[in-house]
């Protein structure tokens, strides 16, 4: 099996996973009483109407009187044709609400990802090059600190110090400033810093430990004997093989933090991105929007895992495609 075959298989598998997740979600919703049906019943009862009749009407309106498999197929087509319904809370289509929110999420996610990907391996390899010196210990301490401190707690503390006490940054996120401006950079600096601290630790540790193995490899000895400068030796002979095992960690780490913490960080800093939208939808009991945003995050996770596996395949030519795990 060649590269193309493997990629096709892996993409197919990602599609299967997404269908399974959508199915589980449908099962979850189908098994529970629909909140809008209950709302209709309550409203009818309050207005002196017949709750039973209102329930029937609402069920018919929502298509809940159809057999299960028809509803399932409807749901499936709806999800994959991006017909995600109308958001009551935002008074706009769910997809539009999500698209608006993505812009804000991207504003801090992109700098955060770039910084993490850039500095994580660099500091890790630097740490390995100076192993067991105070620099290494400082980097390790920082890595553990960032890994262990809850992002939302760290965010609150930094907001207290820089927002409330020093008044360097605005406490509430201002949406009216343009995306590419100094004011926006200033209000996003702390959220980005919090997220970088949270995600860089694991990457630093992996790249430190992985590159430690290459540091004393024979090819490094050869390079040194040939008189290659340390910088070039580390950049060419240590960094490159380190990136291969790192690529498996990197996407997973970023995704985990993205899915978990972006929600919290957006709520703490008041950024109107995807996480905050999900949170508001939950609070406002907006089923379509809750469903849409969780599905969007889920698809991001599936695509992220897919990219991670593909990157690993492309980067490491040593393993044959036949005995590779999907």
């Amino acid at each position: 099996m060649g590269v193309a075959g493997y990629v096709a298989l892996r993409v197919g598998w990602a599609a299967v996973v997404s269908v399974i997740i959508v199915t589980v979600t449908f099962g979850l919703l189908a098994a529970a009483p629909n909140p809008s049906v209950q709302q209709a019943a309550t409203q009818a009862a309050l207005e002196g109407g017949d709750p039973q009749e209102a329930v029937e009407r609402e069920r018919q309106l929502r298509g809940l009187d159809e057999p299960l498999h028809v509803r399932y197929l409807d749901f499936l087509t709806g999800v994959y044709t991006l017909e995600w319904g109308w958001s009551e809370y935002r008074s706009q289509p769910v997809t539009t609400a999500l698209a608006d929110a993505v812009l804000y999420t991207a504003q801090y996610s992109i700098p955060w990802t770039i910084l993490t990907v850039l500095f994580g391996p660099l500091i890790g390899v630097y740490s390995a090059a100076n192993m067991y010196t105070w620099r290494d210990h400082a980097a390790t301490g920082f890595a553990f600190f960032g890994y262990a401190i809850p992002n939302f707690f760290f965010g609150i503390i930094l907001l207290l110090i820089f927002g409330v006490w020093l008044e360097w940054i605005p406490i509430v996120f201002r949406t009216e400033v343009p995306a590419f401006s100094l004011a926006n950079a200033r209000q996003l600096a702390i959220p980005v810093f919090v997220l970088v601290t949270g995600s860089i630790g694991a990457i630093m540790r992996v790249s430190r430990n992985e590159s430690a193995a290459f540091r004393n490899a024979t090819f490094m000895k050869t390079a040194k004997a040939k008189g290659v400068s340390p910088l070039r030796a580390y950049a060419y002979h240590v960094m490159r093989p380190t990136l291969v095992p790192l690529s498996t960690t990197l996407v997973g780490q970023l995704l985990a933090i993205f899915l978990g913490s972006s929600l919290l960080v957006e709520v703490v800093f008041g950024i109107p991105g995807l996480g905050r939208l999900t949170f508001n939808a939950l609070v406002a009991q907006d089923t379509n929007l809750v469903l849409g945003s969780t599905l969007l995050f889920t698809f991001l996770a599936v695509v992220g895992n897919l990219l991670e596996d593909l990157a690993f395949t492309v980067l490491d030519p040593r393993i044959s495609y036949d005995d590779r795990e999907l």
Binding site: V17, I21, V24, T25, L28, L259, G260, L263, T278, L282, V290, L291, T294, F297, T298, A301, V302, N305
Partner: peptide
Amino acid sequence: LSFPTLLFFLLV
């Protein structure tokens, strides 16, 4: 492994 547990929990 690829299931975002936190989000799934939010749905539940």
